[in-house]
Design a protein around this nucleic acid. Structure first.
Lengths: 346, 346
DNA sequence: TGTTAACACGAAAACGTTTTCGTTAAGGAT
DNA sequence: ATCCTTAACGAAAACGTTTTCGTGTTAACA
């Protein structure tokens, strides 16, 4: 087992100084061609690679991006990571991942672990608990220490930084419009509680679409799911809630949901109640994940371009990291959504 | 914007030496109580945190684990990551992710980037291209340089290291046995080409189950899909292939597939051909992902316990990293599979 | 012969820690 | 008055780089 070889060892072996070795490897013209060749040959032979940690310490930058997301077993977030990784690697950066698991304290701890020199900047999406508590001091402190942050998807006005978001409002509005254009008169909304910003915005899009089409919003058509039911373990409860919605309103002929799972469950319930999709009820879900494409019938969805979001976020961060002077002007990039028509709508 | 404060700055400010500050912060009894308090108060005020990079350089360990996986937008791999992250964080390690994208060269490059000091050890699953080329020198070189590797799922005998695998053979065998017990006489297999080790093993399990039950394997019941059709973009081609399988053999009453997607597609095709599931055809898929649970009918699967695999892999790696003397004896941990019965079987 | 310039290289600082090994002064023992 | 111990602290090395600034040698030139 041969340990990694260092400049010092090469220097000793070749009986020159460390500086000479370093310069020779970088083809400095201070060093004679002879010595250069000798050093390079030796380095190649022993497979010399500069130690990243030493370089990081010296350069005061790590060429590493920290990602904090609430959950990784999730199509949307893993696609974002892929996008980040793609451009990060292309530009010579590594990516280090922390999971907040939707918990405030894990988010804080993870950020603290990484902020102490391990990374150059953050790309993150805020955990639900943090959104609920509205405590954003850890973000602002990090930024104050000179470490840039780019937020995506779940963002917040209280923090001044670059952001990448989907146009939740417009995306939802267009989806609901589509249902209206397709002839739906009684469109139900299945959404989350309002403190999740994306839930709130998508709800707003729903309402605006109704309003623009002179449809009266009816409170008994709107179902706000408490977050506990989101987990895979409470599918029956979720199903029961949605069944309640349908039973309470037999005229429902369209459903818009803020995520895939709600949409699939709604389809399941509708079928169970003897309704045909899309003939009797048309359904559109926000978030285009794996489930939608393979559902029966396949689900019409609002695609978010998750990978593109990741790419954009990485670009914003790296540009800022490599900018000469720091730009106090923070951008918010809006990624357009797109309706993917499948078989759950006419 | 206040930059991160260092020992040197504290020392200067308090007019003591760097050593004194360092010791005071660690409550060394070499330092008077008075000085200790003063230093600690100052450090707290300025929110001093030791620089991880400097510590890494000094200690010659980074407390960071490198993960290389072929693909992150994949339920199985993201669950493994979650498992790794879980125990890594618990034991004070961070996790840095590299994606090989199933490419040999990206795998090599990613490993080289991380191996030069950024991490203490690897957890990885081999890319398809690497498996195809059977070139494992980068793994062995890494290990030779003293950096431990733990492989999971896609492993290979040519590399001597700790491994965590699912019992693909037994899992498949049991699944096929179940189909046989349920009355199936003509069981089709939809698998991948043999160079993917898991595909090969699962195929073998299928064959053994048949053999043990005195059923003759029929080559026209076995469909080996070329990897290109795996992607989401070639769903129709995949469908066509599977339809060919069914049309070529109308007596098929059971199907075992090596992944979820094949299973779902098989269900789709069967339905299209007027067959009822599970009455006419029963289906079991390997890999218990999101699709299975939400399919219609829901899919009976072989669960792999991906998160548990990640946890185990992380344990193995960290134990080795923190072991006093290095143990030349490498373990292979086998994670038991479990059949999750749903509605695609009787 | 003396001055200068080019060449080839080395010493040392710096990045931020921790730790070993002094060093100084005070105080007690003899 | 001398010796020894102890408390409290500082200097310096080490981790592995890069880079700035010497420095010595040689050759060219007046």
């Amino acid at each position: 087992m041969k340990r990694k070889v260092t400049l010092k060892q090469i220097a000793k072996e070749l009986d020159v100084s460390i500086s000479t070795v370093s310069k020779a490897l970088r083809n400095s013209k201070e060093i004679s061609e002879d010595t250069c060749n000798k050093v390079q040959a030796f380095a190649k032979l022993y497979n010399y690679r500069p130690n990243n940690i030493a370089l990081s310490l010296k350069n005061r930058k790590t060429k590493t991006i920290g990602i904090i997301i609430p959950e990784i077993v999730h199509h949307f977030f893993s696609k974002v990571i892929r996008g980040i990784e793609l451009v990060a690697n292309k530009r010579g950066y590594n990516v280090i991942v922390g999971l907040s698991n939707e918990s405030f304290s894990k988010e804080v701890i993870n950020m603290e672990m990484l902020a102490n020199g391990s990374i150059d900047g953050f790309i993150l999406s805020i955990s639900k608990e943090t959104l609920l508590q509205q405590d954003y001091h850890h973000f602002n402190e990090t930024i104050n220490q000179g470490m840039p942050i780019v937020m995506f998807d779940r963002v917040v006005n209280e923090v001044n930084c670059d952001k990448v978001i989907v146009d939740d409002l417009l995306g939802s509005k267009n989806a609901v419009k589509k249902l209206i254009d397709n002839g739906c008169k009684n469109i139900a909304l299945i959404t989350t509680k309002d403190y999740v910003s994306v839930g709130r915005l998508r709800t707003q899009g729903y309402l605006e679409a109704l309003e623009e089409n002179k449809l009266e919003p009816q409170s008994n058509l709107i179902l706000k799911i408490v977050e506990e039911l989101d987990s895979e373990d409470h599918l029956e409860d979720l199903e029961a809630e949605i069944e309640g919605l349908f039973r309470g309103n037999s005229k429902i002929d369209g459903v818009f949901t803020v995520n895939e799972l709600y949409a699939l469950t709604a389809m399941k319930v509708a079928r169970k109640l003897g309704k045909n999709i899309p003939e009797d009820v048309q359904i559109i879900g926000f978030t285009d994940g794996v489930l939608s494409k393979h559902a029966t019938p396949s689900l019409t969805t609002v695609r978010q371009h998750a990978q593109q979001m990741g790419e954009k976020a990485a670009e914003l961060l790296i540009n800022r990291l490599e900018a000469e002077e720091d730009d106090e002007h923070y951008k918010t990039v809006v990624i357009e959504t797109k309706i993917i028509e499948r078989n759950s709508t006419k």
